[in-house]
Design a protein around this nucleic acid. Structure first.
Length: 128
DNA sequence: CGGCTGACGACCT
DNA sequence: GAGGTCGCCAGCC
């Protein structure tokens, strides 16, 4: 196995299939929680790859999309990112509300920090 | 092979 | 807060 989601480490795993790694990680976001594109990138050890994470989800084939909770990924501002049409996907807001996450009409996730999911956040860091 | 393109994000006004 | 700029770099053409 080239990539094991249960033990993704600090090493750079960016080989062929960056998209696949993103998809794998997004699958690990629990229901009722959300993560930012940057969070996913960071979990992969690539702090500056947030944009590439978005690209990976954009490239998600329709068939594969229903198996991956893509809607649980929002931007660092806690908002549903705007698509090519210039507005946040109403579909994403609907799916989030379905699992108990409040989203206002502008696409802003209420209480983003409270719902935010961190992969392996056990670093003992204390927010001063 | 080279240029373009973003489901982003950090910064700056 | 709300806007605009700019760097990022894997895929795609």
């Amino acid at each position: 196995m080239p990539y094991d989601p249960t033990r993704h480490g600090p090493h750079r795993v960016v080989g062929p299939g960056f998209h696949a790694q993103v998809h794998r990680l997004v699958q690990r976001i629990p229901r009722g929680r959300v993560a930012s594109y940057g969070d996913i990138a960071e979990a992969l050890g690539l702090r500056s790859a947030a944009r590439r994470v978005g690209q990976a989800l954009a490239a998600l084939p329709a068939g594969r999309a229903q198996a991956i909770p893509w809607h649980r990924v929002v931007n660092a501002a806690g908002r549903i990112s705007v698509r090519a049409d210039g507005e946040p996907s109403p579909e994403q807001a609907r799916l989030l509300r379905e699992e108990g996450i409040e989203v206002d009409d502008t696409g802003r996730v209420l209480d983003f920090s409270r719902h935010r999911h961190r992969h392996r956040s056990d670093r003992g860091q204390t927010p001063s």
